[in-house]
């Protein structure tokens, strides 16, 4: 098997990170909920940013506006200079192909093998007819295997995803996102369903693989210590409004209390392991 790469090393090194920019973005859901209120934020290529806030603060909505999973009601979202807000159809899929995403619930197909789950990450770069006929290109398989290797899941490649533990599932999900050769990595509460040691291990994997590839990373997280430890910059959301933006390491407990709108409680920290 061969790998398509000019730079010889990991194929991912070729994907240049994207800048992300939200301009005056508001999202109102059909049921009337105002999830985001006039949020403007700019993220430089290669930045690792956490979005902190209580559940219901609009974190999930914000992260989903970047790949167009949630359409914005007003404002502009651009990713790598492309207008996400107006992209439709093939252009939108093409754009999403450059934005990897991992989820709190892993979102794997349980009855499908790990390899086929990771190959989902190649969708945007594969003609539909190939997927439908089940003819995967060797290059795509190679990328998928490489991504699995980088999160240490290569020996599970033939296992059904449903047979894995939570931490293994999230690693496979990271591999799925990495196999896209993304320019941006979005993570929506990636470790909220995991126990503390696994959570740290998965956060490590996520941070390591992303920084190896120099990706722009956006992580939704409700735990203050993880935000401080793994990210450079922190954005705080409360009731859909931007209430904090600054270096993550320097965020004080008072800053968190301001973001949460209440005193810090034990469950706001994962705790050390």
């Amino acid at each position: 098997m061969t790998i398509q790469s000019t730079t010889g090393g990991a194929a991912a090194e070729t994907a240049a990170p994207w800048a992300l920019s939200l301009t005056d973005v508001s999202v109102t859901y059909p049921n009337g909920t105002r999830a985001l209120k006039n949020v403007s934020v700019h993220i430089e290529p290669g930045e690792i940013v956490s979005i902190v806030g209580l559940s219901g603060s609009g974190k999930s909505t914000l992260i989903r506006t970047i790949n167009g999973l949630v359409p914005v009601t007003s404002g502009w979202v651009t990713a790598g200079g492309h207008d996400v807000t107006r992209a439709r159809g093939r252009a939108l899929r093409e754009l999403r192909g450059h934005v990897g995403m991992i989820f709190q619930g892993f979102n794997l197909a349980d009855r499908v093998s790990v390899l086929d789950n990771v190959l989902v990450g190649r969708f945007a770069h594969t003609p539909t007819i190939r997927t439908v006929l089940g003819l995967n290109r060797a290059a795509d398989r190679e990328l998928a295997l490489r991504a699995l290797d980088s999160v240490g899941m290569l020996e599970k490649v033939w296992t059904r995803a449903g047979a894995l533990s939570g931490g293994q599932k999230q690693r496979v999900a990271i591999a799925r996102a990495l196999s896209q050769e993304p320019s941006v990595m979005l993570a929506d509460e990636p470790v909220a369903s995991l126990d503390p040691p696994t959570a740290h291990a998965v956060m490590n994997d996520l941070a390591r693989t992303s920084s190896e590839r120099g990706l722009t990373v956006l992580i939704n997280i409700h735990l203050m210590d993880l935000a401080r430890q793994y990210t450079q910059r922190m954005i705080g959301l409360r009731d859909g409004e931007l209430v904090y933006d600054g270096p993550a390491a320097e965020a004080t407990d008072a800053d968190f209390e301001q973001i949460y709108g209440r005193p810090i409680q034990g469950r706001d920290r994962l705790g050390s392991v």
């Binding site: 790949n67 999973l69 999403r96 995403m101 989820f103 794997l108 945007a124 999900a173 896209q180 979005l186």
Partner: peptide, 8 residues
């Protein structure tokens, strides 16, 4: 959602 997010 994962498939959509991957641009499928």
């Amino acid at each position: 959602e994962a498939g959509t997010a991957a641009g499928g």
